[in-house]
Simulated scan of single mutants.
Amino acid sequence: MIVSMKRMNAILMKDFKDFSRNLYVSTVLILPIGLAALYGRTGVNSIESQFMLINLAFVMIATFIQCCLIAEEKEKNTLRGLMLSPASTAEILGGKSLLTFILTMFVVVVTAYLSDYRPANISVIFTAFFLSTFFYIALGTLLGLFSKSVLEASIIVMPVFAIFSLGSFLPMIIDQYPILKIGMYLPNVQLIELATKVEAGAGFVDVLLELFIILAWTIFIFLLTRIIYQKKMVD
């Protein structure tokens, strides 16, 4: 199957125009960056606190914006047109994800910098950020397919905010609530585990397990999203 970059670029340009016109969605970019700037002035530099902001940036940009982009297509009744167009599933989902991917990587890097996070091994952390971006975008796409409007998308992502941002403090309370141990395998917690190992001098080989778990989550959510998307095509 040949993926047409021209079609994906056309979808990207359309999303950029829609995104720039929707102030409700586009102003979300400011929040994680603003919080990181305020946090950087406090002088506190714990991994848990820094990655609460980084994971918040992932959720607010990759998941929320992607969810809103998909939901807006449904609200305007244009998603069906895309599904029935000559563009393939890969071209549509890829094109719908390009803008979110660019914005997410930019905001996450700026958030990390402003919160004074300076990783000991940039290549390992960048790889983890790269994989995490795909996970959160796939999650946002999945939620968007279940949303009928941008307003509904804003509500449906609320549990995700709680789990993947505030959940960054899960390792600190795990001893008090053993039942939460299953949450240690969530991608946001694995990202913190990976970052902690990196600060202790770990390289790629030492964090392969954490990278594999994040990759497994990404593949699982992507496959689930593809199944739901194809089901929506024949509904």
Rank of each mutant, 00 (worst) to 15 (best):
S20W: 14
I33A: 01
R21L: 09
T27W: 14
K14C: 05
Y24P: 09
K17T: 13
V25W: 10
V28W: 09
D18C: 11
D18N: 09
G43F: 04
L12E: 07
V28D: 09
V44G: 14
I11N: 03
A36R: 04
V44W: 08
L35K: 02
G43K: 07
G43P: 06
R41F: 13
L31P: 09
Y39C: 14
R21I: 04
L35E: 11
G40E: 02
V25M: 08
A36V: 00
L12N: 05
I33E: 06
D18V: 05
D15F: 00
L23A: 15
Y39S: 09
K14Q: 11
L31Q: 07
S20I: 08
K14T: 04
I30W: 15
V44N: 15
V28Q: 11
G43W: 03
S20E: 14
D18R: 05
K17W: 05
I11S: 02
L35S: 02
L38V: 05
Y24G: 12
F19D: 00
I30A: 13
V28K: 10
L23Q: 10
A37I: 05
S26W: 08
L38C: 13
I33M: 04
N22Y: 00
R21S: 12
S20Q: 09
Y39V: 01
D18M: 12
I11G: 00
G43C: 03
I30M: 10
A37D: 06
V44D: 15
M13A: 09
Y24V: 09
V25A: 04
L38G: 13
I33H: 02
L31G: 03
S26N: 12
Y39A: 06
G34F: 12
V28E: 11
L29V: 01
L23T: 14
K17S: 11
L29Q: 06
I30E: 12
S20K: 11
P32I: 00
F19S: 01
S20A: 14
L35N: 05
T42F: 07
L12F: 13
F19G: 00
K14S: 12
G43A: 03
V44E: 15
S26K: 02
I33D: 00
L35C: 04
R21F: 10
N22L: 00
S26D: 11
D15R: 01
V25F: 10
Y39M: 15
Y39E: 06
G43I: 01
D15N: 06
G43M: 10
L38R: 09
S26H: 10
K17E: 13
Y24L: 12
V44F: 14
T27D: 07
T42N: 13
T42K: 07
P32G: 01
I30H: 05
A37H: 09
S26L: 07
V28Y: 10
N22M: 04
F16M: 08
A36Y: 06
L31C: 05
R21E: 12
I30F: 08
K14F: 07
G34V: 04
V44P: 13
R21M: 13
S20Y: 09
I30N: 09
F19M: 01
Y24T: 10
V28S: 08
F19C: 01
F16V: 04
Y39P: 03
F16Q: 12
L23P: 10
N22W: 00
N45H: 15
A36W: 06
S20N: 11
F19N: 01
M13E: 10
A36Q: 04
I30C: 09
M13T: 08
R41N: 14
K14A: 12
A37C: 10
L23I: 12
L31M: 10
I33C: 03
